[in-house]
């Protein structure tokens, strides 16, 4: 059924698999030169120029209290938009775009730490993988609250 099918962009942070609804993804770019912003919160790597727009880059690893992303040629930035403002989410590797059956979504497992839990809206599981689907608004807004 069309209703229950979801397209996910799946990516890796360290060894963990995460997913973001493709409808939320504007584009995926390679890591350009990043201007570091001193005094900024820890998860903010810096800012970049994306075709004339200043985009804040968030290290998703740090944000989710995982190891921070590691410099490698696989590292990518997912450009998303929230509240009319573009953000870049830095991840270790982009895996795939997958169609999933909405029926196979479940709540986040209880053993996910609370601090992480609020960023995870649901979990997808099938035979060979487990993907945590992220709540974009929470990711971006929490960052704001935290810095206040």
């Amino acid at each position: 059924m069309a209703d229950s099918t979801l397209q996910l962009c799946s990516f890796q942070l360290a060894e963990a698999l995460f997913g973001l609804d493709t409808m939320l993804v504007q584009e995926i770019i390679k890591v350009p030169e990043i201007t570091k912003v001193y005094q900024a919160p820890e998860e903010i790597i810096g800012i970049i120029n994306l075709r004339g727009k200043i985009v804040t880059i968030i290290d998703l690893g740090v944000k989710l209290e995982l190891p921070s992303t590691v410099e490698s040629r696989n590292r990518r930035i997912i450009i998303v938009e929230s509240g009319n403002e573009p953000f870049g989410l830095m991840v270790d590797r982009i895996n795939d775009v997958i169609q999933i059956d909405g029926g196979k979504l479940g709540p986040a497992p209880a053993n996910v730490r609370v601090s992480q839990g609020r960023f995870i809206s649901s979990v997808f599981r099938d035979e060979d993988q487990l993907i945590a689907i992220l709540n974009l608004e929470e990711l971006v807004n929490q960052a704001e609250n935290k810095t206040d």
């Binding site: 005094q39 800012i47 004339g52 985009v55 804040t56 810095t147 206040d148």
Partner: peptide, 19 residues
């Protein structure tokens, strides 16, 4: 002058960013 994103607006050290 380009404004900074919402995560960085509170930083008083900067008036904005430029390309």
């Amino acid at each position: 002058v380009k404004p900074m994103g919402r995560h960085l607006k509170h930083l008083t050290s900067y008036a904005g960013a430029t390309i």
